[in-house]
Design a protein around this nucleic acid. Sequence first.
DNA 1: TATTTAAGGATAAAGTTTATCGTTTACTGG
DNA 2: CCAGTAAACGATAAACTTTATCCTTAAATA
Lengths: 138, 138
Amino acid sequence: MNKEAIAENLRAHTLKVTPQRLKIVESLNTYGHLNIDMLYREVKESHPNVSLATVYKNLAIMTQNGLLEEVKISGHKSVFEVKKAPHIHLHCSRCGKIEDIEIDLSYVKAEAEKRSGYIVSGSEAVMVGVCPECRHNR
Amino acid sequence: MNKEAIAENLRAHTLKVTPQRLKIVESLNTYGHLNIDMLYREVKESHPNVSLATVYKNLAIMTQNGLLEEVKISGHKSVFEVKKAPHIHLHCSRCGKIEDIEIDLSYVKAEAEKRSGYIVSGSEAVMVGVCPECRHNR
DNA sequence: TATTTAAGGATAAAGTTTATCGTTTACTGG
DNA sequence: CCAGTAAACGATAAACTTTATCCTTAAATA
Ligand SMILES: [Mn+2]
Ligand SMILES: [Mn+2]
Ligand SMILES: [Zn+2]
Ligand SMILES: [Zn+2]
């Protein structure tokens, strides 16, 4: 995804297009899921005197506006990602890697609604385990 | 669940039985899911000069030892609960309530393993929505 | 009941997040 | 383009959260 497409996405969410924001979204496009410290380091590479507060403020507003999503991972700092089609997460407990996988949870949702009386509007799921690479390297 | 059963549970996890720990587990038995502030307030009621550090230390050690579990809820502080059979969570976005529901995720797990090559050892899932009470009261 | 050691309380230190405020920059409309 | 406006930025203080330290207290053991 190129800069102009990212800028489009920012404008679509009524956010001004700034170099810092472009870099945040670019980094997320490249790496998938990053926490605040990783993002701060990323942005600093191209904008050495960016303020940490800027990264905080941008993650907050971009998450509120639905451009980004926060993913809470047990035992780690939250990571952020660009919002995309619903999916669940795989978390490798060895190397810490986080992967997306599209598995349909509508059965779980339907079952939860039926048995609880809730009306469910969203869901988050994380499966924890060991990735193939970590398994092979001992 | 009575005090002696809780004490048993603590001993089973090689933890000394202290009044502060009893109160923490009692409160969790009563209310289900509580965050650190709620637990601090709870323990203070019966032990007015408990230190916040004691609550932190106990939640950490009891979670490490597998007596408690931490549940990360989007947009809120983590809540803790007494470890029990695997289950998923329902979170009401109106009143904040958190409920347990036992829904089998083995299909999701199997599918994730098959398609990713991971070996999955655990999972966490939260369904967000509106509970029946909140729905009825407008 | 004495001994040992984990746990508690008080509080300092460290770490994280948010608020403030003056300056800069992106956008708008002429 | 350019000027005006509001949003965003950087710097930094303040607030808030969590962990570490250290001395005292109390639970377990025999
Ligand atoms: Mn993802
Ligand atoms: Mn639960
Ligand atoms: Zn791995
Ligand atoms: Zn509700």
